[in-house]
Simulated assay, not measured.
Amino acid sequence: MADIRPYRASDRDDIYEICLKTGRSGQDATGWLDDDDLLPDIYALPYVDLAPETAFVVDVDGRARGYILGVADTAAFVERLRSDWLPGFLEKYPPNDADTPTARFARDASRPERMLIPELTEFPAHLHIDLLPELQGQGFGRGLVRTLLSSLRERSVPGVWLEYGADNVSAGAFYRRLGFTPLASGAGTRVGLHTDAVV
Rank of each mutant, 00 (worst) to 15 (best):
A55R: 00
S156V: 14
D37S: 15
A98E: 15
R107G: 00
R24W: 13
L90C: 14
Y67G: 05
H126N: 09
T100K: 04
R63P: 05
A106I: 08
E53W: 06
L149P: 11
C19S: 12
N168D: 12
P87C: 01
I18R: 01
K21M: 09
A64F: 05
L90M: 15
L149Q: 12
G88R: 13
W85V: 04
P182Q: 02
A29V: 09
Y67S: 10
H128F: 04
P124Q: 04
D84E: 15
V48Y: 03
F140D: 02
D84I: 04
L86G: 12
T100H: 05
D61N: 14
T100W: 02
F89G: 02
D28E: 07
S156I: 11
G165F: 06
G188T: 10
D59Y: 09
T102P: 11
L69F: 12
S10R: 13
D3H: 14
I68T: 08
P112Y: 01
D59W: 11
T30M: 01
P133T: 09
V160Q: 01
T121D: 15
L116C: 03
G186Q: 03
P133A: 00
W85Q: 04
V60F: 06
D37R: 15
E154S: 13
A29H: 10
R63K: 13
R114F: 02
D97A: 14
D99E: 13
R5I: 10
